[in-house]
Design a protein around this nucleic acid. Structure first.
Lengths: 214, 214, 214, 214
DNA sequence: AATGAATGAGGGTTCATTCAT
DNA sequence: TATGAATGAACCCTCATTCAT
């Protein structure tokens, strides 16, 4: 009896929720789903290699319906980039708040970022499609990315000052590590042999080995 | 005497030849230029974002003229991939012949490969456009790339055996380093602040730090 | 009573339906029109000499709109062939059911087929464009055509057995007659001096004269 | 010895001939070969389905070389049509000179024409590609064809007058027979089971049966 | 809120044709 | 005489985008 009632409640709850969700909430949820699926496809097959028809099919709607949620294909790409950058900023904020030394912060950053990228949410880390952005958007994204890169370099500088990081070129080092991370979207799949956690742990280990001063 | 004269004539002949190129040579040169320019564009702006018209324009010919040298746009992409893989194989061969220990070989490999990629010749390292290959070609390229990855892993295993490399996951480590390298095509330009040599040196340094056993 | 009322309603419904066509019906009608116009053009000017632009213009739509109804230019040709073969099969079935002797069946076949070809419906009898079919489709069409030819020959054989047809080579005879018929698409126009009925009557008369045993 | 000398003479003769042929003769021979091969291809695969590259390949020269012998692809088609019409006229002249009655002439015409079409020389009876002629040429060819058709009809009329042909519609009858003949280029091959002679005999037999008055 | 239908722009490809050599 | 190389026009096809319903 209890079971039945729970079940009923469960059913009611979800049924209710789908009714009770405000229009704006529904809209947001659907839009988010659209961005997620599109981003996943973009980062897997590339922007120009993914048609809106493809995206629509994974959402079980028609191509035309997408235009209710976004203005453009370009807007999708732009938003995906922004979300992806949000992830970076979050990881950056997290590591700055929780790390003590420069090295510690760097390792926290890598760990957090890789975990995000490999989680379901982060599957649309489409950083690879930078060139597909139209000039205006490219400028915005570029600026934010530069900012992120500079913050990353600052962490390295911090490590150099506090003696936890050995002498390396901050700029190139950031490029190298970001390459390792961004390239993941090309080979990582949730079904693969290595889990996101494992990958994060291994990369952290590698970075530690590469940067740690002795 | 006769020999000498022949040799002299031979030298003259080839000197002449190098000025007045044979038709086949001209053909090869033009084809190579086509591949180079196309590859450069592909790796900069993406395969689908680069029209043959664009490529033709940089070569100062008509779109149609390209079809005298290649069968397809797809063939261009495929050939670029193969050339890029050739570079990898050369680097691999080089390091296996000249390195002693596992670690040494790895460092030689990274050094050689990065130098190639950043040299003028390597401007068409379009490894990013894997998904744009049609199935048949994708299979071929995929196989070769896997082979390269396996050889790379083997170097790591070798280092593990001979004690020059510390305990790391070979598979993931290869992915990480290849990411660093492949990602270079996204930010490297000959005009940039860092030269190819410098980049190679820095990455080698980083890899050494990351892998070296103590 | 209920029945009657239902029937009445039914009639109303269908009357209504025939005015306000369902989407599927509209789609089918438009597709049929597309095939008809394309087929007419193909058989008049040839497949390769007819651009989709031409076809689109006669339908007052854009070239691109055609792709909503067919996959390919090739699909258009193929479907026209199949429709044309359907006509042949229908005529064959008709003559086998309604004719008594071999000769009678042959004459019925010729009569029916010619009437169909010359009617509005049959305007896309593009049998001449066989070579423009791509291999796969050519095989399918070829098989069906062979089947028709064999059935035709069988009618002649039947006439030979029952004594209504004089000694002729079945295979060549079929080729000759099919030539007369297929060639019609080259000179027949609805505006011409001879009507479809007249043509059918004359050809039947000729065939009778040519085949009848005495 | 005699043998050797003959051989030598033979060799000389042909070698000589190829030297001694006047430029104009060589030109004419090659041009004729070009027309023959092109015509063969046109009537087999259609005008637009046959590229000059194809034609050039069968002659073992380059596409560009063809332009030394003809002005145009269109000129090739036109000349083929004219040659084909020449064959018709020859057959017509032959039958008029050698036949007595109307029917006799008709049968001679059919016999001669079919034999020509099926012989090596006549393989380029490309009458099917009428629509591919450009307006000016189409007018010329159309006129000659009409003239031939009228002459054919006249033979029928003659047969009607002299009582050797039964009552048929001259115009349609001509169309029917020409269809049988023209359609042959679609199915006849020298390697096929029926020889040209056999086909001619059978068609003559059929025509006789169809037209003969009793 | 979503769909069917249509469009326009752009890209890849073919091919007849030209021309210097 | 014949070739290699190149061109321009035309064509098929895809796809992001729009709009009435």
């Amino acid at each position: 009896m209890k079971k039945a009632s729970t079940a009923r409640r469960g059913r009611h709850a979800s049924a209710w929720k789908s009714v009770v969700l405000s229009r704006e909430q529904q809209f947001s949820l659907k839009r988010a789903a659209l961005l997620r699926e599109a981003g996943r496809a973009f980062s897997l097959r590339g922007y120009h290699n993914t048609s809106l028809e493809d995206v629509a099919k994974t959402l079980d709607v028609t191509k035309a319906a997408l235009y209710y949620y976004v203005k453009n294909k370009q807007e999708i790409l732009f938003e995906c980039h922004m979300l992806s950058l949000d992830f970076g900023d979050e990881a950056m904020k997290y590591c700055e708040e929780n790390g003590k030394t420069g090295l510690e912060k760097i390792l926290l950053l890598v760990d957090k970022y890789v975990r995000t990228i490999t989680s379901e949410m982060g599957s649309f880390a489409v950083l690879g499609e930078y060139y597909a952005l139209e000039p205006h958007n490219k400028a915005i994204v570029g600026k934010r990315r530069d900012k992120f890169d500079r913050a990353f370099r600052k962490l390295i500088a911090e490590g150099l000052s506090d003696g936890t990081v050995r002498a390396v070129d901050p700029k190139l080092t950031v490029f190298f590590f970001m390459g390792s991370i961004n390239w993941m979207t090309r080979w990582f799949t949730p079904e693969g042999s290595a889990s996101g956690e494992e990958i994060a742990r291994q990369l952290v280990d590698l970075v530690k080995g590469a940067l740690r001063a002795r």
